[in-house]
Design a protein around this nucleic acid. Structure first.
Lengths: 170, 170
DNA sequence: GGACGTTATGTTATAATATAACGTTGATCA
DNA sequence: TGATCAACGTTATATTATAACATAACGTCC
């Protein structure tokens, strides 16, 4: 099991997700304080909504769920908050889904690559040292100079793969 | 004036892009005949427009440039044609750009990974045997079962990298 | 030969995603 | 105290994509 997963275990709803949210928010607060950037109430609320699960969340889900009490919000507010959160490595964008996911290890800035489960939609960051090396080697062969990348790998996570197996036996 | 055809993006050497287009269309015709699928005039025209360069082309560029004579078209027509072309491996979608690019080797069906130049926007398919192996190994470690992936690597192609170098000396 | 199925396209409307442009507020501080 | 700035509000609109239903063109089967 990788370090990425921390307290949360694979598969939907098998853990107390409130702890994931609390941890993510606390880490975000600490990091923003340390970096002297401003984690405002709006940004904090958006981060909380991104963390409503381990699945990617769409911008308009956030917009629609934003109202706390009876305050609504509008697209630019949420997109700005998402920009801030991405700049600060607290949230990643999943390009192939037009969606956003909380970063599980924001303390070290990184570009993330992802495994995305097509069954439960859980996203895990790939530990990407080896991937980077592979790409660098290929790039050198073509004289290509890499700056950044989008890597989103789809398939079944362990839990869902096992469930599928169960279905075959049922 | 249309958004068509800024001269071809160099890549290694400047080339006569009309030949690229002609080749792509001919190969498409051959493949569709061999597979007994129907490369209609609409689909052929969309493919031609996707091939207006080696850069990704947006759906609405295609829609706006579609008129041959004075016939316009509407989004569903073009999206349907793109779906057909993608199903038949003649076109790939670049997820992180919401854009489409002609496939350079449609004769063998494949999922493609890409190098995308941030300067000239040229796209090249990565020969991805090694990439797949690397991902498979990582996936096994996490008990993840891969089905497909999006890999889009950004940076400078050789030509643009060299140009940038020149600029630094200028 | 005409009813029917199939494939592809046309048409209308709208959904879903994202940003431009400009206005307001409240904190800070010279 | 008023200039500045960061953050957010507001309005409008741009961009990307699809749903839903209508029509056309063609083959086929009785």
């Amino acid at each position: 099991m990788t370090e990425t997963q921390k307290a949360c275990n694979p598969g939907p709803a098998t853990h107390d997700h409130r702890r994931c949210i609390a941890t993510a928010l606390r880490e975000a607060e600490d990091l923003c304080r340390a970096r002297a950037v401003n984690l405002t109430a709006t940004r904090r609320r958006v981060l909380e909504l991104v963390w409503q699960g381990h699945e990617p969340v769409k911008a308009y889900q956030i917009i629609n769920n934003f109202r706390a009490g009876h305050q609504a919000t509008k697209p630019p507010t949420v997109y700005r908050a998402l920009d801030f959160l991405m700049e600060n490595g607290l949230v990643h964008r999943i390009e192939s889904l037009n969606a956003f996911v909380g970063c599980t290890r924001p303390e070290n800035r990184h570009q993330a690559d992802f495994f995305i489960c097509t069954a439960c939609h859980r996203v895990d960051e790939i530990d990407s040292g080896k991937i980077a090396a592979t790409f660098e080697k290929l790039a050198r062969q073509q004289n290509f100079t890499i700056s950044h990348k989008t890597v989103e790998v789809y398939g079944l996570c362990r839990a869902c793969h096992e469930k599928t197996g169960e279905q075959f036996h049922a």
